Amino acid sequence: MNTLPPGGVIPELFHGLFDDAAVFPPGNLPVVDAVPAHRLHRTAWYTEAVGPLLCGAGRLGELAAAVANSPETAAIQGRAAGADGSVAAGGRPLKVGLVLPGGSTELAPALAAAAPFELAGVELATRDATEAVAALDRLLPPDVPAAVELPRELLRGDGLDAVLDVLVDSPYRAKFRTGGLVAEAFPDEDELAAFLTGCARRGLPYKCTAGLHNAVRHTDPETGFEHHGFLNVLLAAQETDRTAAAAVLAERDGEVLAKAVRSLTDRQVTVIRNSFTAFGTCSIAEPLGDLAALGLLSSPSPLHQEDR
């Protein structure tokens, strides 16, 4: 992976938007490679756009070993590194978002295993929002944010309102899956609009994950999957009307979306980012490249495929 020169500008709308999900499908970058790649993101001109490195609970030991054995850690060993060497470039702990696909039973052991890192957040998958909130209330340090994800089949019809009502009375965000490895993993515009507007009406923040690393809605030419665009989601995040949100999500013209982004006021940007806080992407350079191509990002040089 080539580093990119300094000098770019990241608009406020995109600050911290791209959580680094490089080790998750479909990217599946080995953890030993994901650590130095994330460190490069953290020192690159676009660092303001980058969130934490996401890691599943079952791979924290692998992550600690990769950090401890990295050349960067060896260079600072004895100065800023801890006993296990779990530090990032510059002597600071690696900022990690903890993903718990196994539910709240994973929470306590995962928190203990994540002790060497700077815990940026917890993402907890569950089938019971009330139980998940109770577990987070009991075990999560008060300064650590969390997001709760329920299966999409439980968020249809009255189930969506019931779950969002539980979360809005908690300190935690919602999390919604916007794609995956099969066509059925991708919600259509109306289903996603129902989630977005349900959150917007309640003032409930959320993050998204999977299938969202391109800026504009499109059909993947290889798989035929219908991918949502993260610009579509950003713009739809300010809508409280489901039909209006679905129309924004359906837009496939990048120039139309780019024009709408350029017309946003500072207040609208604040509203949008208070709602849609981040999404996981296995590529950091790909969404940045899309933004640069649409003229929404001032980058110091083109983002080539080899930078991804």
Rank of each mutant, 00 (worst) to 15 (best):
G295D: 10
L291E: 07
L154A: 14
A112G: 04
G82Y: 04
A74S: 13
L160G: 05
G289T: 03
D241W: 09
E62W: 04
D137E: 14
P300L: 12
L167D: 02
L13Y: 12
L136P: 00
E72I: 15
A125P: 00
T265L: 08
F14A: 12
D290N: 15
I76L: 12
F18C: 06
E72N: 04
S86F: 00
A135T: 05
A108N: 06
L139S: 11
A57V: 12
V23I: 15
G78P: 05
S170N: 07
H228R: 07
T197W: 11
A285Q: 06
R42G: 14
R242N: 08
P101E: 08
Q305H: 12
Q77E: 13
L167V: 10
Y172F: 12
H228L: 13
L4P: 00
E239I: 03
C55P: 01
P25D: 10
P145I: 02
L100C: 07
A258D: 12
T3M: 03
N214K: 12
V233Y: 04
K95E: 08
G102I: 06
A68Y: 02
V148P: 00
E222D: 14
L17I: 14
T178G: 12
A147M: 07
G295Y: 10
L291T: 08
L150D: 03
C199T: 03
G203S: 11
Q77I: 04
A134L: 06
S283G: 03
